[in-house]
Amino acid sequence: MKIHVFFSRLLGLLIPLFLVASWHYLSVHEVVPTTLLPLPSVLFDTWWDMQKSGELLLNMKMSLLRVGGGFLVGASVGFLLGTVMGVWKPVELYLYPVFNFFRQVPVVAWIPFLLIWLGIGEWFKIVFISCGAIIPMALKTFEGIRGVPTSYLEVVRAFEYGKFRMFRTVILPSALPSILTGLRISLSEAWMLVIGAELVAAGEGIGNVMIIARRLFQTDVVLVGVVVIAVTGFIMDKLLDLLETRFLGWRRIQNVQ
């Protein structure tokens, strides 16, 4: 059983390995010029050089700070928005149509407008990332709260619970799985958008490293950027996964049963 699980996990590595092998083949035989597709081994060397020089860490730190800021602001606002819409029906009636309207706008479509308002500085990036992080968080929080079973609410209503205590004991825990999903989507959105923002204009950051590398015709550095972004995104998602396990232990066991 355990061995079987182990091997089925390995299956997920098969395609990446195959892709890397084909990639290596294509580059070595110059089917695709190395200026367009550098060798995997070159990529590794480039990554190591960037790592050693501290360049990667410095830029990574900058990007992560921006993600942190934008995500914190965006997720908080999104949580509040989703909560008030979920808890108070009148607020929903006022806000939801507006919210739905803004939801249709792809975040990147805000770039020109935000650039006019905020220029290309840090404010632009934070606001831009927040804009993207708000939507999934608000939506998932709202959905979570809407999905709280009436049966649970009745239990505490019979106990004369006020709004706040009801929110703490029933609404929040019941909506938590959905909220955590929102948090996850929000974070991955923020991570995508920070790269987008840095591609527009930035002094530092991993997206900036890539854009500079592109302008200096360093395809390998661009690709290292892609890999680093993917790995970072993966790690962030895993961290939230751990958070979920920590807070939703009751739910997992319940599902297994």
Binding site: S151, Y152, E154, V155, R157, A158, F159, E160, T169, V170, P173, S174, L176, W250, R251, Q254
Partner: peptide, 20 residues
């Protein structure tokens, strides 16, 4: 007038909160 702690209720489904 509304629910009161003077009246307890047991539902058909136990309605225990699964997170507690």
């Amino acid at each position: 007038n509304g629910p009161s702690l003077k009246r307890g209720v047991v539902f058909q489904d136990h309605r225990l909160l699964p997170w507690f």
